[in-house]
Design a protein around this nucleic acid. Sequence first.
DNA 1: GAGTGGTCTAGACCACCTA
DNA 2: AGGTGGTCTAGACCACTCC
Lengths: 260, 260
Amino acid sequence: MNDHEERESVRRPPSKRIADELRQAIESGELTPGAKLPSERDLAAHYGTARNTAREAVRILTDAGLVIAEHGRGAYVRKPQALIRLGNDRYSPKYRDAGLSPFLLECAKQGKTGRFEVLSIERATPPTEVAGRLDVSEKTKSVLRRENVFWADDDPVQRVTTYIPWAIATGTGLLQEEVPHQYGIHGVLEDRGHVMARIREEINARMPRADEARHLRLPPGVPVIDVLHTSVDQKGKAYEVTRFVMRADMSGLLYDVPVE
Amino acid sequence: MNDHEERESVRRPPSKRIADELRQAIESGELTPGAKLPSERDLAAHYGTARNTAREAVRILTDAGLVIAEHGRGAYVRKPQALIRLGNDRYSPKYRDAGLSPFLLECAKQGKTGRFEVLSIERATPPTEVAGRLDVSEKTKSVLRRENVFWADDDPVQRVTTYIPWAIATGTGLLQEEVPHQYGIHGVLEDRGHVMARIREEINARMPRADEARHLRLPPGVPVIDVLHTSVDQKGKAYEVTRFVMRADMSGLLYDVPVE
DNA sequence: GAGTGGTCTAGACCACCTA
DNA sequence: AGGTGGTCTAGACCACTCC
């Protein structure tokens, strides 16, 4: 054990010590999900510290995603959420005739009401990472951009932005809010000769940007999963890119794929 | 605009205002990655606040993963890291004769030296989520557990734990540190009749647990990606489960898969 | 009105790094 | 030695919730 660790174990700062004990109480089940933590003033009195020190302890747990503080009410042990899991099969033809989209299906499974909201539909210049993935050979790098938010009950869960080369999207009615095809956007694209043969999904996780935290109403301590999806047709051409930004405490991914 | 938003825009707390300005400076490129932020004392003097208030501003950015504070040195704009991307093709036979593992390949691409470290190899009882995914029909739910850490240069990047039903692992030499097969663990399993036909990967992101933050040496504001991998053989039997816990600022995933 | 978290002040001392 | 972040104190007032 080196000097640093030696000191840590002996002279652990009070805020961390309090945090450790609260964490221990949570992990041991003494404080169950949904339970209320002692108030900051009570913790301070109990441990003989200033309120700020007790507050710091609670904050450590908040930042770790274990606790959620509610202004004027108290701090509570966070309840694990059932995950809405997007699978790679969400683009499978098998869903077509079922009628329900995979997202709505997942919501239904959990007794939640899912819905989509269209934020904007515009002609735009794509961000570089999108332009680099789309086969946009034209000089005018222009795409149709559709922004959506997916809701589960009253929680915004995913922010979804789809980019389609303008040359492909033009004249298809994809500028309308209501997509003019029974099978949605991908039905339209298929009619234009782009049958989805493969998908390529690049996955990352990170803390939300300020605007994402606002839009997804994210409490502290919740990261986002950032998925950059590319649809590739039977000729190997990338004809559509979608970015999913999902709140990680309510969503996950699932890939069930062959080994090639 | 409701009352709350009205107040926010007018009476924004000083700590958030300072954080906003620093964030703005970072996003605009005024403060480039690696640049040093003003010291907390300087910020406080400049904005006419107490040091704690300036400190709170810096902390907001630290928790968002934008800034890293170094004790005794200063706070710095965090540099984006090149991601080590694990692909679904990492189990593909095509890597077999190349000799290098996908992780090491990715490290090499970035001029880094990758290495594996074996933490433990033991017979154990699997956690419930593992037991539920492995086809362990026996009454004695016992598995071989191998724990590894993957390093890139001097950074621990992934914590990897593999579970194999004891009935499959016994007598294979998988209890040794050096796996007795040219193609590694999966070579051994293949000799036992388990050819990997499909993989199933469940993906999540979350803030690290305390022990994970310690083991992966995670700075504040960095989430982990948690992947639960299941290998399925040609008969549809799940014969191996691996959990990857990866630091999200240095790693990502990539799936390039057919639409079935 | 009482209780809670959110923010702030104006100090203080400690631990660490650089020089 | 001087500058930096890390932690703490003992207050204060505000904003919000609940009764």
